[in-house]
């Protein structure tokens, strides 16, 4: 299967700190791919590199065959990369509906002229957007709260709304940064089902950062492990579980990847 996303010896340094160090990664199209590692390992930084928030100090990133160097986050979103954030970043003062609507604007052809003229073409466009938002929200059971301000949603709903909003950009690759953080076991298992169904329904690849090992092991077909910015292992969930380097990174004897400490770093 051809890779949708490729990282070749990608490195980023912040002053003296090498947050991501010579990482190679090839994400097959339509994959459910896990990226794990202790706190501070560089997972979120890797997401920021892939989405153009940071430019790599060295190495190159290729998305669907073309290099992404120099592209801004909004351009990469237009190319088909969408993400959620470890610390939820919804448009807090906007409604659920409008949070999704912002993302819909990416592939919506109308701009200033139509908004000011407000002709029948504009009306049709807006009705079409509203219909598509309605359909998306229904899939995620968020349609009843469409007029609620995003910041007053319960925590789990906020996490799901972030996923809906990302999907509204019509991505080919979805990056999820700890989507299960703060969820209870029931919510977590629902989330796993949801991610699986998203992959099929929206025909995209998912790169998942998650601390809940059970969730990652059950969900992902392939997993890469970062430690201090270095990729120390990659393989199937079974291989990762047995990998001595991985067990070491998660503080060896006491803690296997199945039972990691919350953090092994200050």
């Amino acid at each position: 299967m051809p890779a949708i996303l490729e990282l070749e010896r990608v490195t980023i340094r912040f002053g003296g700190l090498t947050a991501v160090s010579e990482v190679d990664l090839a994400l097959p199209d339509n994959a459910l791919f896990g990226l794990i590692g202790p706190n501070g390992a560089g997972k979120t930084t890797a997401f920021n590199l892939i989405t153009g928030v940071y430019q790599p100090t060295e190495g190159r990133i290729t998305f669907q065959g073309s290099p992404t160097a120099g592209l801004k986050p909004h351009q990469l979103a237009a190319h088909g990369i969408a993400r959620t954030f470890q610390n939820i970043r919804l448009f807090a003062s906007l409604t659920v509906f409008d949070n999704v609507r912002v993302a819909m604007a990416l592939h919506h052809p109308h701009g200033i002229a139509q908004a000011l003229w407000r002709g029948s073409e504009f009306q049709r466009g807006e009705r079409d957007v509203a219909q598509r938002i309605h359909e998306l929200l229904e899939i995620f059971n968020l349609d009843e709260v469409r007029d609620v301000q995003a910041c007053s949603l319960p925590y789990g709903d906020q996490r799901r709304l972030e996923i809906v909003r990302a999907l509204a950009t019509q991505p080919r690759l979805l990056l999820l940064d700890e989507p299960a953080a703060g969820m209870n076991p029931t919510e977590k298992s629902q989330l796993a089902d949801l991610i699986r169904s998203i992959r099929t329904r929206f025909n995209l690849a998912v790169l998942l950062v998650e601390h809940d090992m059970q969730l990652v092991m059950n969900l992902c077909e392939r997993i890469a492990v970062l430690d201090y910015g270095v990729k120390i292992a990659e393989g199937s969930p079974g291989e990762i579980r047995r990998n001595p380097k991985v067990i070491e990174a998660y503080l060896g004897e006491e803690h296997s990847p199945d039972n990691p400490p919350p953090s092994h770093r200050p």
Binding site: A77, R89, F91, L94, T169
Partner: peptide, 15 residues
């Protein structure tokens, strides 16, 4: 409004 609320999120959503 998205730029007002969260610039980073707005950029990631294609704004």
């Amino acid at each position: 409004l998205a730029v007002h609320d969260d610039e980073i999120a707005a950029g990631a959503m294609g704004v």
